[in-house]
Design a protein around this nucleic acid. Structure first.
Lengths: 144, 144
DNA sequence: ATGACTGCAAAATATTTGCATATTC
DNA sequence: GAATATGCAAATATTTTGCAGTCAT
């Protein structure tokens, strides 16, 4: 965890973000998980280490991270925003049964992003959300 | 508008949805616009014709439409859900300057949807959201 | 000491739910 | 007349805002 924190601190400094204890913890946590946590999940995870932590700070922090390209917020699930310790462009997949979100790396994403369209002058970001059933849930169903 | 209503009614009947006045109006409106309206925009547009209309009915109706594959709800803009009189699979583009949402039809969408991934057993839906600046806004900027 | 950051409480917003009434076949 | 649909009001949930206190340089 200490090494995670050091890494997070380095990323923040590189991105021009003042590395406060809260921010380091948030980024460190995001980098440590592939679960695409919600605000509440991040809050619960960090509350032990930082008892004074507030959700306002989380919202501020995650908004700042997104602006600076340090992390990503996902609208894959309308009812709860999810966060992702962003690295390279990728898609997401939501399993309708277990609710988990998986990262989807597609080689041809650049093709899509480079596509031309009459209404588009320039593209800054792309979010791709798939919805279906994950392999794990499909197998569980099979075992019933 | 009468022909629109007739068309909407036909679609509803085909989809196994009881064609009430409210539902016909909602679908007719969705089919008449490419603006990807929010609940409030739909509400305002229909309030004149149906003064008793409630947002509860709109939410119910749009949820039903989505379940039956008659329309689509978009999470492209986190703060307001948008609705689309769905026809074929397509992407959406949100202009960060004017806030308008455009339909993006890509021929290679089927390639993407057919992609295989270790975590995915089956895919039911795909949403692709692009964010950037539309041509109209870019040209306005140029003229300043 | 100054400016940035944090966090509490309140406000704003969007969506859902419970239930009574109305409508339709 | 039974089942379904509508719409009001209240509840829920989430995010934002205002502001006062805190921290770091």
């Amino acid at each position: 965890m200490i090494t995670n924190n050091e890494n997070a601190k380095t990323v923040l400094l590189k991105s021009g973000i003042k590395p406060t204890a809260q921010r380091i913890s948030v980024l460190s946590f995001l980098l440590s998980t592939k679960s695409h946590p919600t605000i509440d999940e991040i809050f619960s995870a960090l509350k032990k280490a930082i008892p004074t932590l507030s959700k306002t700070t989380l919202y501020n922090t995650l908004k700042l991270f997104e602006e600076k390209g340090v992390s990503l917020s996902l609208n894959i699930d309308y009812h709860k925003r999810r966060y992702d310790g962003f690295s390279k462009p990728h898609f997401h997949f939501l399993c309708k049964k277990c609710g988990r979100v998986f990262d989807i790396l597609l080689k041809d994403i650049s093709k899509i992003i480079n596509s031309r369209h009459v209404n588009i002058a320039s593209i800054e970001t792309f979010h791709g959300y798939f919805y279906g059933i994950c392999r794990n849930c499909k197998e569980e169903r099979r075992n019933i």
